[in-house]
Design a protein around this nucleic acid. Structure first.
Lengths: 208, 208
DNA sequence: GTCTATATGTTGATAGAC
DNA sequence: GTCTATCAACATATAGAC
């Protein structure tokens, strides 16, 4: 399966030359997450994943215990990273408005670091107990994000004519939508993307 | 299956009293779309859909030819509605900035009219020829939306320090994210939601 | 680390009776 | 408009050899 070998994002990192692919656990997970995002988690069978990697299904199950385990590992990374962003903003010095901007920029940064894993987190549907658990953690995160909007409102830096929960959801909905088109090898660097997003969130489209 | 009968969004519209459910084609499609959004299109089997409706699988296939047909019918509605919004804005009098606002408000309106069908459109993954076709039409729509942003920039009403394609994607990403939490029976009316969204897009979060 | 073979269940869809 | 019965294809996951 030449396509598997030449694809830089799913090719194994060791044994660069000949012989069997020789994937390790992270190779398999990376390729699986990529495939889940392309075709959808449920629409991706372990069979097609195996074909894409150029190995048999059993070879995959040597590295991971179940399909769901891949989902958990990937979304866990995203949840942990985003929680860290909120935590750092909680403890940061400065105004509430500055801390909110830290959250916005941090979220964009995490999203650019692991777009596939964040995408998987955002697309959870709650079809199993495990997924429901992950979604609950995601909801907690959302609440803490909105809290930062509220604090910036109380401070007077953010307009108070709009409901905090509503604009919080809209603002982070905008940020999350980045995963739909962001590509690490694309024209935008994470920093410029964070700049544009922050400007749009705080200042809007209008010229002044 | 009492839950199916008491659920106002999936209950059949005829024969309100006793006997077999007596669904018609639209009842089945409405319930299916709802289920696709809750569990995901691929994760929803015709079996569980049948159980939810309280009928057998065969009863469903009396109304529709295939699972994919439901997807097409629903996303077609969303595509047509959104195309009309863009078309009306294209032909509207007034400044480019006003026409862009028409598009923003129109998109929110369509989204509130058929949130489930728009959601299905946004979540297409392109796993079949039919899905790829629908996605191509969606892409055409995105291009036309961004064009309105460009025109407003050329006019000088929208800031030109940010790339039109980029802010266009971000702005409509924000609008699309509404489907993640909007409920027709919730606190927000479509008009207030369109107001808040338009304000946020054009003016941003900052108090003035 | 990979293979073939297989167990076991579920899927979308059909046939034909009522 | 609904049913029961059925099908081939495909799903996730395992056993055991190399």
């Amino acid at each position: 399966m030449p396509q598997a070998i030449t694809d830089p994002t799913s090719a194994p990192t060791k044994q660069p030359g000949r012989g069997r692919p020789g994937y390790d656990r992270m190779d398999v997970i990376r390729a699986a997450v990529r495939e889940f995002n392309t075709r959808g988690y449920e629409a991706t069978s372990m069979g097609t994943l195996a074909k894409r990697l150029g190995v048999s299904k059993s070879a995959i199950y040597h590295h991971i215990a179940s399909k769901e385990e891949i989902l958990v590992e990937a979304t866990n990374w995203a949840l942990t990273s985003l929680t860290e962003v909120v935590e750092e903003a909680d403890q940061a010095n400065g105004s509430a408005r500055e801390r909110l901007e830290l959250v916005v920029r941090g979220a964009v940064r995490v999203l650019c670091e692991g777009p596939e894993r964040v995408t998987l987190l955002l697309r959870l549907r709650g079809n199993t107990e495990v997924e429901l658990d992950l979604m609950e953690r995601r909801r907690t995160l959302t609440r803490r994000l909105i809290n930062h909007v509220k604090q910036a409102q109380d401070e007077g830096a953010v307009r108070t004519d709009l409901d905090a929960g509503l604009v919080g959801r809209l603002a982070f909905g905008m940020i999350n939508s980045i995963v739909e088109w962001y590509r690490p090898d694309g024209p935008q660097t994470p920093e410029t993307l964070a700049d544009v997003t922050a400007k749009l969130v705080f200042e809007g489209l209008e010229s002044k």
